[in-house]
């Protein structure tokens, strides 16, 4: 009998819920390193529309992206204000910040609570949508940061 346990299993049920415009999104905290407040963003010359620039996070230079552009569901462009947060993701040591209009909470979402196979969003919203979960009185769209940021589209 060999059982290899790891903490990842535990982190799997923890989700961060954040807001983009009026919609709520959730993503597993296993890829989240921290949540940061406003920080000046330095523009970088790139053709990637979703890349806003880089920030200085305690001496580290970290790219920041606008998820709205990637999700392709909202037209508006993210602007930083006092409520907005940068969610710092860490996937295999590569850090990327995701600009959110606000961070709502960190909560437990059981896998069973996530309804998969719902075609919420028109068209090509492929692999990064994991489903929808109802938390309290709101619907939260569950997305996978790894797929969102790193899968070639």
């Amino acid at each position: 009998m060999t059982l290899d346990y790891d903490m990842e299993a535990y982190k799997d049920v923890q989700y961060i819920v954040f807001r983009l415009d009026d919609e709520y999104f959730g993503a597993s905290v296993k890829h989240v390193e921290s949540i940061e407040r406003f920080s000046p963003i330095t523009r970088v010359p790139t053709d990637k529309e979703s890349t806003i620039g880089v920030i200085n996070l305690r001496g580290e230079v970290i790219p920041v992206v606008d998820p709205k552009k990637m999700l392709g569901i909202l037209d508006s462009q993210s602007k930083q204000n006092s409520k907005s947060r940068i969610i710092i993701t860490d996937i295999s040591g590569n850090k990327v910040g995701i600009l959110a209009d606000s961070a709502v909470e960190v909560c437990e979402i059981d896998k069973k609570m996530i309804q998969e196979n719902i075609k919420m969003l028109k068209g090509k919203n492929k692999d990064f949508f994991k489903g929808v979960a109802q938390i309290k009185d709101r619907y939260v769209m569950i997305i996978d940061f790894e797929q969102l940021l790193w899968s070639e589209s």
Partner: peptide, 13 residues
């Protein structure tokens, strides 16, 4: 400081 993997395709920087 490296810009990291995510921006690796920006060659002029």
């Amino acid at each position: 400081k490296s810009l990291g993997e995510y921006l690796a395709d920006i060659q002029i920087v």
